[in-house]
């Protein structure tokens, strides 16, 4: 299984601390293994940022699910299109959706 496939499987498991760090680690490996690391670098930092928000604090299920509901779909679409070898422009637009979802979730 490739790291991109592992990332896709991990996204299905949802947002919780251990999984966010696992996904960040996968993104780092992916970034190091490609001539186009930017999308993986961005995703890694978003996962780490969310993890830092939730580290060592009580995390209500409702809050975690609200963030998931905003972010999982654009992330899954980005990962799917990266797997399919999408164009730079398409990846950029999808990354913008991910970043927007993150900014809305943690404004």
């Amino acid at each position: 299984m490739s790291n991109l496939q592992r990332l896709r499987e991990r996204l299905k498991q949802g947002f919780y601390l251990d999984n966010l760090y696992e996904m960040a680690g996968l993104c780092k490996s992916l970034a190091l293994d490609t001539p186009s690391p930017a999308p993986y670098f961005f995703m890694r930092n978003i996962f780490l940022d969310i993890a830092r928000h939730w580290e060592e604090v009580p995390l209500p299920v409702e809050e975690a699910e609200q963030v998931e509901s905003k972010m999982i779909e654009p992330l899954e679409e980005l990962v799917e299109r990266l797997e399919a070898g999408a164009s730079v422009e398409e990846v950029f637009n999808l990354l913008n959706r991910v970043v927007s979802a993150y900014l809305i979730s943690f404004k």
Partner: peptide
């Protein structure tokens, strides 16, 4: 000690 619905770091509720 808090009561509610929490997501733990392992993902368990």
């Amino acid at each position: 000690f808090l009561q509610g619905d929490f997501t733990l770091s392992s993902g368990r509720k």
